[in-house]
Nucleic acid binder design. Structure first.
Lengths: 116, 116
DNA sequence: CCATCGTATTCCCATAACGGAATGCGTCAA
DNA sequence: TTGACGCATTCCGTTATGGGAATACGATGG
């Protein structure tokens, strides 16, 4: 049985978006469809690299492709990001926590002062 | 110069949370502080594995440690998740898109019907 | 001071990533 | 039909992963 080292980048959206360039690609695709070459140039990466990253994104369902003549136009399919947003959202109260604590601390101070 | 293969898991929160078990750890830590052994048992992983994952999480600043006697208690530091939430949140309109399209399609239908 | 508890670290291994360079391949224009 | 264009794929090399097992290490209790 295969000893898994690190989960494949294609195993899920979490792994796919761990790569900065792939996040760049997704960001760019918010602007609409892009043929590979243009996308690569826009983001300053080689065409093969762009193709490879796009393949990963396609495999996890974050982008779609459409053949137009001899080009392949990629577009966003953001549904796969939703689970991530929800998972991370489950921690929202905790990154407000320190602020809340500070806040209640300040409240306590105020109250203590009034009671002096 | 070092040829980078894949970004280190410790390079940022995106990479750190790509590993399911680390997400499990973070989830568990919402319940409060945990000593390593208990945490490992709760999540069904070996103690060394737990320690290793916790190290990664600590290096990217997602958890804090506190020494209590001979145990080390880990707790959540969720601030580092915020950038992720914001990045993913930037795509929210796009995963509502298909719904929106369906919606406007229905509107069009209604309107067309009234104009008959 | 010594044995033990709670953890962290180290070693070993199989796997796969990402980048660069080269190449394969389908489609369109002449 | 042929050549060029737009992409995808393959090969190579370096690096680091996560799991298991063994071990090192600091703090505590006796």
């Amino acid at each position: 049985m295969a000893v898994m080292a690190r989960a494949a980048t294609t195993s899920d959206a979490f792994n796919a978006i761990a790569e900065p360039q792939r996040r760049d690609i997704l960001g760019l695709l918010r602007a609409g469809e892009w043929p590979v070459t243009d996308l690569a140039q826009e983001l300053g990466m080689s065409q093969p690299q762009a193709s490879k990253h796009l393949r990963v994104l396609r495999e996890v369902g974050l982008v779609r492709v459409r053949g137009v003549g001899r080009q392949r136009r990629y577009s966003l399919d953001a549904d796969g990001l939703r689970p991530i947003h929800e998972w991370v959202g489950g921690f929202e109260q905790f990154w407000n926590e320190s602020f809340d604590r500070l806040n209640s601390y300040v409240q306590d101070l105020k109250q203590a002062r009034q009671e002096e």
